[in-house]
Design a binder for these strands. Structure first.
Length: 619
DNA sequence: GGCGGGACCATTTTT
DNA sequence: TGGTCCCGCC
């Protein structure tokens, strides 16, 4: 890690910034995480006798963890004055503490599965639940209240508006009744709390004297409103890091105007970190040329300056058709020594191209894996254990019992009916979970789980003991099944489980209650482990925030990248598409390989306009 | 047998 | 926006 003396002038200025709000414009590889964490550490070190805290907000769990790790190195055990959370985790913390004012119980659970949200709407007898859900999400991400809704409907559509208002209210009520929140409603309730309980808001403002936001350009309106409540513009210390050239989540509520609002609302000072420490000179140059074509950028922002003196390779290849493009790609990757394969990232704009590339590479003996994150675990056996914990936390949840039965059915030929178990529980006056354990214990593999469950989840709540016994049992049972037929995905799931458990241990110092434990489990994405000599395949969006030695971008043709949609829907979309391309090429720290074909799936395509804009192709 | 017209396909997914 | 294929009609 770098020390203050190694910082460049603008980085040092940002790190030493103290008394006013600041917007730091930080392009790819500009050292923004170092700046953020060093400033936080600096402030804490220079105020040993004070009690205020610093709140650092990020979007991804990964970013929060990365900052936390760095802060721990910088501050040691002084880091308890720093809260580093994702927006959503911060909201859940707040709602657990103060949600009772809004009739939320502190042990609410988190819905991460879209199907569960749809199910709530179905319960409400909604006609077109998928469509309504996306409208509700729009209301959530844009912070649109029921009262404001008519503004967004034409006069002749007010009936439709009224229906949506009714459903929205019912949906919120249902979440609260069932004691569960989805991602959008966390923001909704947090805003409501801060707006209607000024004493709580005031207290938060006193405690969190400094607030830092990473990747601010990704905030949706609801999050920005919450931020403004926490850090009122007239007397706040807000430290915001952003890159307007990396806004690629507009369809999820991010918006270039948000930065404009920030500048206007806060009269904020602006500082740019101009150096790019990641990309070689050639790549910085083409990235600069490309992004210059976006007209709506902050005028003051100068092009990135390459810091590194060594040169990197940029290679552009064209092929007659997609098949040949893939074979060219395979040849190129083949030339990378096996031990460097895990430093290779293949990027495509769409999953369609990515999947095709994946198949092709594997068929031609190149170890490749599509990297995607799952919100949930995937192996049935671990899911059973997990759902048991969730049912212990929400003892009356029929939907959780349904999931649990679905996961357990099939184990040793077991057949379970949630209906029967629920009826039996009623008759015997026992809990759903206990009744489930009674029914499932006839399965050989689940029997030890059931016994442990009765002791440690029903008679007493000692969830760590339950987990410990289950994992031991699974491990022992797994020894006979090297081929993993009985426990598919178990290995990955267990790795994720242990990793997240460790994180929770560190964060809560072993004092996490069951609902907090489950919250962290729910909010942390689960990843698949990837082999050592394996090339990673990612879409542009999922590759954001990563860095690789060798980056390969395929499909640089009109209507692929930029997509047909972007071309059709005009300048604003095209600018976002250009930022997508900017993000893709700036992942590379050594070499960049770009390719396009003249034909995809039987359709003739021209080379991407972005190649011309980068100066790699003539008109 | 020659033709006009329609179908085909078309993105991304932080929590 | 593309190229191509196939159907139906004259």
């Amino acid at each position: 890690m770098i020390s203050i003396s190694q910082l460049n002038e603008s980085q040092r200025q940002a790190v030493e910034w103290r008394d006013k709000s600041l917007l730091v414009l930080a392009g790819p590889g500009s050292g923004k995480t170092a700046v953020l964490t060093m400033r936080i550490a600096n402030i804490i070190k220079n105020s040993p006798d004070e009690n205020f805290r610093i709140l650092g907000l990020t979007f991804t769990v990964k970013a929060a963890k990365e900052m936390k790790d760095r802060i721990t190195v910088l501050l040691g055990n002084m880091d308890n004055r720093v809260q580093l959370r994702t927006f959503h985790a911060f909201c859940t913390d707040l709602l657990r503490q103060h949600g009772s004012h809004l009739n939320l119980k502190p042990d609410f659970s988190v819905i991460t599965d879209e199907k569960d949200r749809i199910a709530i709407l179905k319960e409400l007898d909604v006609d077109n639940p998928e469509d309504i859900l996306s409208r509700i999400d729009t209301m959530f991400t844009h912070g649109i209240s029921v009262e404001e809704l008519p503004k967004y409907f034409a006069p002749e559509n007010q009936t439709e508006c009224y229906e949506l208002q009714t459903i929205f209210n019912q949906y919120i009520q249902a979440l609260s009744n069932e004691n569960q929140l989805d991602f959008g409603s966390m923001l909704y309730f947090t805003r409501l709390l801060l707006e209607t309980k000024p004493r709580i808001t005031r207290q938060l403002r006193t405690v969190y004297k400094y607030i830092c936001v990473d990747e601010f350009q990704d905030t949706n309106l609801a999050q920005y409103i919450i931020l403004k409540l926490l850090a009122p513009p007239d007397n706040a210390n807000l430290f915001v890091v952003a890159d307007e050239d990396q806004i690629i989540f507009q369809w999820n509520g991010a918006d270039p105007n948000r930065l404009e609002s920030l500048k206007k609302d806060y009269h904020i000072d602006i500082l740019q970190l101009p150096y790019n420490y990641r990309c070689p000179k050639e790549i910085v140059e083409i990235a600069n040329r490309l992004i210059k074509h976006n007209s709506n950028r902050i005028q003051k922002k100068s092009p990135g300056i390459p810091f590194r003196k060594d040169s990197g390779k940029v290679k552009l290849q064209s092929y007659e058709n997609f098949d040949l493009e893939l074979s060219g790609l395979a040849v190129e990757i083949d030339s990378v020594p096996l031990q460097d394969r895990d430093k290779c990232l293949l990027i495509a704009r769409s999953n369609k191209l990515l999947t095709a590339a994946n198949t092709y590479l594997k068929e031609h003996g190149i170890n490749a894996e599509i990297v995607s994150k799952n919100q949930d675990f995937s192996s049935p056996i671990l899911l059973i254990m997990y759902f048991c914990l969730k049912l212990a936390n929400a003892p009356n949840s029929r939907s959780m019992l349904n999931k649990l039965c679905a996961a357990a059915t099939g184990m040793n030929g077991l057949m379970l009916s949630a209906e029967d178990i629920s009826a039996k529980a009623k008759v015997e006056g026992s809990s759903l979970l206990r009744s489930f354990f009674d029914a499932a214990s006839e399965s050989e593999i689940l029997n030890p789980v059931c016994n442990a469950g009765i002791t440690y989840l029903c008679d007493t709540i000692q969830y760590q003991k339950f987990v410990h016994i289950c994992l031991n049992h699974f491990d022992n049972a797994n020894i006979d099944n090297q081929n993993n037929e009985i426990f598919p995905d178990y290995k990955d799931d267990k790795e994720n489980w242990l990793r997240i458990t460790q994180y929770i241990e560190d964060t809560y110092e072993g004092n996490a209650g069951l609902h907090v434990f489950l919250q962290e489990m729910d909010l942390t994405p689960k990843s698949k482990s990837i082999g050592k000599d394996c090339v990673r395949l990612q879409t542009v969006h999922s590759a954001k925030g990563t860095e690789f030695d060798h980056v390969f971008v395929i499909g640089l043709a009109e209507e692929q990248f930029p997509t047909y949609f972007a071309i059709k829907s005009g300048d604003k979309s095209m600018e976002e598409e250009r930022r997508n391309c900017f993000v893709a090429i700036t992942r590379a720290s050594k070499s960049l390989y770009l390719s396009y074909a003249g034909e995809y799936f039987g359709w003739h395509k021209r080379p991407s306009r972005f190649l011309k804009e980068m100066g790699l192709l003539n008109d």
